[in-house]
Simulated scan of single mutants.
Amino acid sequence: MSLSFALPGLLWALAAIALPVLLHLVRRERQHKTVFAALEWLDPRQRPRRRLRLRDWLLLALRVALLVALALLLAGLQRDEAPGPARVVLVHPALPAPAGLAAEGERWQWLAAGFPDTVAAAPSTTDAMASLLRDFDATLPASTTLQVRLPATLDGLDAAPLQLSRPVDWQVEDVSPGSDAPPPRAPLALAVRGAADAPSRRWLRALHAAWQAGADAPIEFDADGEALPPATVVMAWTDANPPDEGTLDWAAQGGTLLLDATTPWPLERTPVALDGEGWLQGAGHGAGRVLQWRQPLSPEALPAMLEPTFPGRLRAALQPSPLPARADARAVEPGVGAAAPRPPPQPLDAPLAWLVLALFALERLLSLWPSRRVPA
C-alpha cells in the first residue's frame, strides 16, 4: 500500500506550521515592575541576556499537528491500493460450489456477472467469460493471487488472446457444459432502399431467395427510405444518389449498408477491397460498415452471378461466420502480459476530518484550561 495526493500543489499549506512556532517565540508574559533598594547599586549597563525560549510544548505540538492534518486534508491524501484478500478462487457456474469454508484471507466467488459469493446459488449462464476474467483481474490488488476452476469446455470466449496481469492457477475439471455443436447461423434479412426502378432490385430478390433456402428472413422494399431497419438487417442502397445522413447514421450504429455500383462513395475514407472475389469494396463506419459493389449487379458485368455457389459466397461476405466462442479450457490458459491493475485510490478524507476535529478540540481545551496562568 502507498499514499499519494489528489491535489499535491496544496501541500504548500504545510508552511503554515511556522505560525504557531513564531507565536510561541514572540509571546510575552505579563511582567509587573517591582522596585526595591538593591537594584539601585547595580550597574545600569549590565543587563541579563535574553534567550528565545519555547513554552507550552504540548500546546505547540497540538497546533502544529492540527495544521499538518488540515494541509493533508486539503491536498487530498489517498491510499493507492485498497486492502484485498490474499487469494481469490473463481468458480465456473457449471461446477458445483466448493465444499467447506474458505480459509482465512481467501474468497470464493462465481465466475459470472457481479461475481457473487459461492454461498449463493450458482448463476444459470456465463456470458462473455473472457471479458469477465479480464475485468475481474483489473479490479484485484496486485498482491492477490488468483485461482480459476473451470469445466473442460468453455463458452463465452472471444478472438483476443486471454492475457491477465498475474499468473493464474488454472484448474480444469472434466465437466463439459452443454453440446459441442456450433450455434446455427441466424437468417439474413435484407432491406432495399433507394430508386424503385433500379435494375439491381430484381437480382437482389433472386439472390436473397437463393441464400435463404426456406429460412424465415424477409426481404423488404421501401422506395421512400424513411423507415430504417434493425442493425441486424443488411440494407441495400439502389440509388444513383448518395445515401442521406440518416442512413449513414444507421450504419454508424452497427448496421451494414450495401451501395450500388453507380452510387457515389459517401465517406471520406477510401474504400478497399474486402475479399478475394473482387465483388465488394468498403470501409468501416463507426460501429458498422459501408460496402459497395465494384461492378453493376448483372450477369453481364458480374459473370460470377451465374455460378451456383455465388449466393452462398455473397452471404458469407455480408454475414461473416461468428467467431468461435467455445474451446478446450486447457488450450486457452491465460498468459501474463496485461497491464498491472490500478485500482481506484481510496480517499482518506473522513478519517482526516475526524482527526482535525479531535486535534482542534484538544487544542481549545488545553488553551482554555483554568489552571493556566497565561491564556494562549
Score class of each variant (00 low, 15 high):
residue 292 Q to S: 14
residue 343 P to K: 00
residue 275 D to R: 03
residue 308 P to L: 10
residue 363 E to G: 11
residue 325 A to K: 04
residue 320 P to I: 14
residue 351 P to Q: 12
residue 325 A to W: 00
residue 329 A to H: 10
residue 370 P to K: 11
residue 269 R to H: 15
residue 315 R to M: 12
residue 291 L to P: 03
residue 288 G to D: 05
residue 289 R to A: 08
residue 307 E to I: 03
residue 301 A to E: 15
residue 305 M to W: 01
residue 351 P to S: 09
residue 298 S to R: 15
residue 343 P to F: 02
residue 362 L to P: 02
residue 332 V to F: 02
residue 368 L to V: 09
residue 366 L to C: 09
residue 302 L to M: 07
residue 337 G to N: 01
residue 285 H to N: 13
residue 365 L to A: 13
residue 280 L to T: 04
residue 337 G to R: 00
residue 342 R to Q: 11
residue 349 D to G: 13
residue 318 L to S: 09
residue 289 R to F: 01
residue 369 W to P: 12
residue 350 A to M: 14
residue 319 Q to F: 04
residue 304 A to H: 07
residue 334 P to M: 01
residue 315 R to N: 06
residue 268 E to I: 08
residue 309 T to Q: 14
residue 346 Q to D: 14
residue 356 V to P: 00
residue 308 P to Q: 10
residue 276 G to S: 08
residue 273 A to I: 10
residue 356 V to M: 08
residue 294 R to K: 14
residue 283 A to M: 12
residue 274 L to Y: 00
residue 307 E to A: 14
residue 320 P to A: 11
residue 349 D to H: 15
residue 272 V to Q: 02
residue 287 A to V: 01
residue 336 V to M: 02
residue 323 L to K: 12
residue 298 S to Q: 13
residue 348 L to C: 08
residue 336 V to L: 03
residue 319 Q to R: 04
residue 304 A to R: 10
residue 270 T to I: 03
residue 278 G to W: 14
residue 325 A to M: 03
residue 332 V to Q: 05
residue 292 Q to H: 07
residue 334 P to C: 08
residue 350 A to F: 14
residue 329 A to Y: 07
residue 308 P to F: 06
residue 327 A to L: 14
residue 315 R to W: 11
residue 274 L to S: 00
residue 326 R to I: 02
residue 335 G to W: 00
residue 299 P to M: 03
residue 365 L to V: 07
residue 290 V to S: 02
residue 327 A to N: 10
residue 289 R to N: 07
residue 357 L to K: 10
residue 277 E to F: 11
residue 280 L to F: 02
residue 336 V to N: 00
residue 294 R to W: 08
residue 306 L to G: 11
residue 309 T to W: 13
residue 321 S to I: 06
residue 362 L to C: 09
residue 366 L to T: 05
residue 310 F to T: 08
